[in-house]
């Protein structure tokens, strides 16, 4: 088992009703699989922020240990102690 911490921001936190959550996961679980699990755990509007036409929403911003991930990196397996940060579309000053 590994433990991964997920921090949700902005609308994601509002829709999920939680800002930080730890997940105990089987080894080998990928980021995409964790997202899938979160979608099932949180109320419905959360799903629309994560997926867009069945694919990962291109406006979703995912940081793994403060490193910005691109889509191809979402199939990587998570490690114990990893920290994820998730943001919906925001930008500005």
């Amino acid at each position: 088992m590994i433990t991964v911490t997920v921090k949700l921001f902005n609308l994601l936190a509002i829709y999920a009703g939680i800002k930080t959550q730890s997940f105990d996961l089987a080894e080998g679980i990928t980021i995409k699989q964790l997202l899938e699990r979160m979608v099932h755990e949180y109320p419905a509007p959360f799903k629309d922020m994560i997926y867009h036409h069945e694919k990962i929403n291109p406006h979703l911003r995912i940081f793994l240990n403060e490193h910005l991930l691109n889509e191809s990196e979402l199939d990587a397996a998570l490690s114990d102690g990893d920290k994820l940060m998730l943001f919906p579309a925001i930008a500005g000053g």
């Binding site: 921001f9 902005n10 609308l11 403060e66 910005l68 940060m85 919906p88």
Partner: peptide
């Protein structure tokens, strides 16, 4: 796509986003 997040938080929503970058 950006409307809802900015509407809710204004520019203050950027504080968290700027940390990891």
């Amino acid at each position: 796509e950006f409307f809802a997040g900015i509407h809710q938080f204004g520019t203050s929503g950027l504080v968290a986003l700027m940390q990891p970058i």
